[in-house]
């Protein structure tokens, strides 16, 4: 799967998911062991808390050609470090608006709270986000897409 994500996989959309170690990562694991079906075009990055995710990481992901970026962390009030996800909520609320002003569709950046017990919710989030990003198509920031326009 990894080479699909990085390489040329045609029409498939590529999604990068930042998952908090304490909740959503375990939620993803639970979704797996429970055999819930969800799309596989997601590359995940485990972080110790969503509060550690710099907006630069998201910018970099889009710059590298990701079509959608998901950030999934502990519910407000449940952050392992108590308030880390407050920063997440603030930062990415602002970043989404900024990207929108520059013309990147809002739907390409999503923030979700998924606990370790919510395997089903995790699968559902991945399904609906993948659908949404698919409907938007490849990101206009993909290098290839750009070259296509210019050619």
């Amino acid at each position: 799967m990894a080479e699909n994500i990085g390489g040329d996989n045609g029409d498939e959309v590529r999604i990068l998911a930042f998952l908090c170690n304490w909740c959503s990562y375990a939620g993803a694991d639970l979704a797996g062991v429970s055999r819930f079906q969800y799309p596989t075009n997601v590359l995940d990055v485990r972080v110790m808390c969503t509060g550690t995710i710099s907006p630069y990481f998201v910018i970099k992901a889009f710059q590298e050609g990701m079509d959608g970026v998901l950030i999934a962390g502990c519910h407000i009030g449940d952050c392992h470090y108590l308030k880390g996800n407050y920063m997440t909520a603030k930062r990415f609320g602002v970043l989404r608006e900024a990207l929108k002003f520059l013309g990147l569709e809002e739907g390409r950046l999503r923030l979700e709270w998924v606990s370790a017990a919510e395997g089903e919710k995790y699968a559902e989030v991945i399904r609906s986000f993948t659908e949404e990003v698919k409907a938007l198509g490849p990101s206009p920031l993909r290098k290839r897409a750009k070259a296509g326009v210019e050619a």
Binding site: G51, I76, G77, K83, M87, A89, K90
Partner: peptide, 16 residues
């Protein structure tokens, strides 16, 4: 600036 400190749960509720 609210982006320079963590803040409180109420701020986040308002934001959401």
């Amino acid at each position: 600036s609210p982006l320079s400190f963590l803040g409180s749960e109420q701020d986040i509720e308002k934001l959401e």
